[in-house]
Write a protein that binds this DNA or RNA. Structure first.
Length: 536
RNA sequence: UGGGCUGUCGCCAAGUGGUUAAGGCAUCGGACUUUGACUCCGACAUCGAUGGUUCGAAUCCAUCCAGCCCAGCCA
């Protein structure tokens, strides 16, 4: 359900008052990393807000720092956004505006609002002042505009080395807002840019570039996260002083953080380096590529994001909310029998031929599947215990009768063990009168379990994913101490034949989980079924 | 007395002067059940604190407390 949100309200107001008649939003990733669930809020909100009002949505790469960025991220990011179902109307690059930005910088110099500073980075930092004390003015602050302009041109021409000079805005070294203390606008970086190649050796800083990018594109509402609130004054200053025709409005919202999940770049890099996860697309990560690999349906992500709205507060959202949306999204998936850790059951009084049981899907009567059945079947190891532990136990035990879903009642009579004493087979008997669909009601079985025919069942791999971190992990601890050793488990399993022929790739493995079948017929657990079963 | 922002149930989150303070997740009971699923019933907050304004406040004012962000030539 779509929450009303304050940004939507602002947009509606701007449309009503005629401030705008066409909304343009944008998602401005820096091509230096992978997208995760947190980004999904920004992407989806920017996209849906624009589309809700017939507006335009831009994907703009904020590629203003060549030494940190790489073209390889661009395709990955585009891929993730496409997968998310938020197609952009225009694909743009900040680097395409470098000429305009340079001209605007010159304009600021000519207006006496920017100057070339020759102090080192260290000195600039030291003279910026502290949170409580004002900064010191640079000795170069009041040099003639013409001199700054000539120097800036020389910077562009490549006459200086990295760090020798910067262009600074001339605002207020005593401002309580650190961002207004003559922020650096341009720095020298003799670096190869993935798009502009070697055309430039000076690159604009975020505070200068971003507002210009927005204004150039005619962005009406520029959404960003809360930590940029302090930057709004400089954002507005740049748009105003650069005399931009279009005046975008920056609006900040709270980041989406997922409790107990890892999305930090550094942390993930460490995990990759340590071999804990394969890469950014590991199904245990909340990166978009990881979620995609696990099989999380996009619609579930959209519902999750919309259910949270667009708050100004920053909390930690439980992943359980996403999981609930996944279950609800997948609730009508075809059901299949998947037996994890199979345990053989021989039905001693069942005829040797076997039979085919035909079963219509619960959700769709037209979807009929054949379920083979014979005297040799498999059930899950966890569905059998020697002695029924309590009266709530609704599975198989010696002397106990259960229903095999879609088949017959069976009663466990004895077990076969190996030399080590492990149970390797159950001997059971069945009652022909209890066949599924006969409305047999002389006695109640001790619950219902699922099975797969031994001969016609197909061995497959079943992958189970769990949180990467232990519960309430203390991030200050060494990684080894907070890692969940069971975060990824591979099980041998056996599925009914229909599980490989049914259309689609999402299924509900009865009594277990929603699964995604991949091209290699590996079954991935997308999310476990809910369970009110209490072990105690 | 540096600046900016936030504070409604364990976790999200509606609510903007008159409601029994929505809803979801989680939890706890119970019904139903050829999935311990689904579904359905039921339980579960006086709104960071304290004062004030008002017939009436989570919503207005004041003070206080707590948390987050800012001193990159990162974004």
């Amino acid at each position: 359900m779509e929450h009303s949100n304050f940004i939507r309200t602002i947009i509606e107001e701007d449309l009503k008052t005629g401030k705008h008649d066409h909304i343009i939003t944008r998602f401005p990733p820096e091509p230096n990393g992978f997208l995760h669930l947190g980004h999904a809020r920004s992407i989806i909100m920017n996209y849906t807000l624009a589309k809700a009002f017939g507006g335009t949505f831009h994907l703009r790469f904020d590629d203003t720092n060549p030494i940190k960025e790489d073209a390889t991220f661009i395709e990955a990011i585009k891929n993730d956004i496409e997968w998310l179902g938020c197609p952009w109307d225009d694909l743009l690059f900040a680097s395409d505006y470098f000429d305009t930005m340079y001209e605007k910088a010159c304009l600021l110099i000519e207006k006496g609002l920017a100057y070339v500073d020759e102090q080192s980075a260290d000195v600039i930092r030291e003279t910026r002042g502290t949170l409580k004390e004002p900064g010191l003015k640079s000795p170069y602050r009041d040099r003639p505009n013409a001199e700054s302009l000539a120097l800036f041109q020389a910077m562009k021409a490549g006459d200086f080395k990295d760090g020798e000079k910067v262009l600074r805005a001339k605002i207020d070294m005593a401002s309580p807002n650190m961002n207004m203390r003559d922020p650096v606008l341009y720095r020298i970086q003799h670096a190869h840019h993935h798009r502009t190649k070697d055309a430039w050796c000076i690159y604009p800083m975020y505070d200068f570039a971003h507002p210009l990018e927005d204004a150039i594109e005619g962005i009406t509402h520029s959404l960003c996260t809360l930590e940029f609130e302090d930057h709004r004054p400089i954002y507005d200053w740049v748009v105003r002083e650069c005399e931009m025709e279009s005046v975008p409005r920056q609006i900040e919202f709270g980041k989406l953080k997922i409790a107990n999940e890892i999305s930090g770049k550094r942390f993930i890099n460490t995990l990759v380096a340590d071999g804990v996860v394969d890469d950014y697309a590991d199904p245990r990560l909340v990166t978009l590529s990881g979620l995609r690999k696990k099989g999380v349906p996009v619609a579930a992500i959209h519902r999750f994001i919309h259910s949270l709205g667009l708050p100004k507060s920053e909390g930690e959202t439980s992943l359980q909310m996403l999981e609930e949306e996944i279950r609800s999204e997948l609730s009508s998936a075809p059901r299949i029998h998947l037996v994890k850790e199979p345990l053989r059951v021989t039905i001693t009084n069942y005829p040797s031929e076997g039979e085919i049981l035909t079963q219509a899907a619960d959700q769709d009567e037209t979807l009929v599947r054949d379920i083979p059945f014979s005297a040799q079947i498999y059930i899950e190891k966890d569905d059998f215990v020697l002695e029924k532990p309590n009266k709530k136990w609704k599975r198989l035990a010696l002397g106990i009768e259960v229903r095999l879903m879609h088949a017959y009642f069976i009663k466990a009579e004895s077990v076969v063990t190996d030399e080590a004493g492990n149970i390797i087979e159950i001997k059971a008997t069945y009652d022909v009168r209890t066949k599924s669909g006969t409305d047999f009601n002389e006695r109640k079985p001790n619950g219902t379990i699922h099975f797969v025919d031994a001969k016609q069942g197909v061995p497959v791999t079943y992958m189970e994913y769990n949180p990467l971190l232990i519960e309430n992990a203390d991030r200050s601890q060494p990684i080894d101490a907070i890692l969940n050793s069971d975060s990824m488990k591979s099980y041998s399993a056996i599925v009914e034949p229909a599980a490989l022929t049914l259309p689609g790739s999402y299924f509900q493995a009865i009594r277990s989980s929603y699964v995604r079948r991949d091209e290699a017929n590996v079954f991935h657990r997308v999310v476990a079924l809910r369970s009110s079963f209490k072990r105690s």
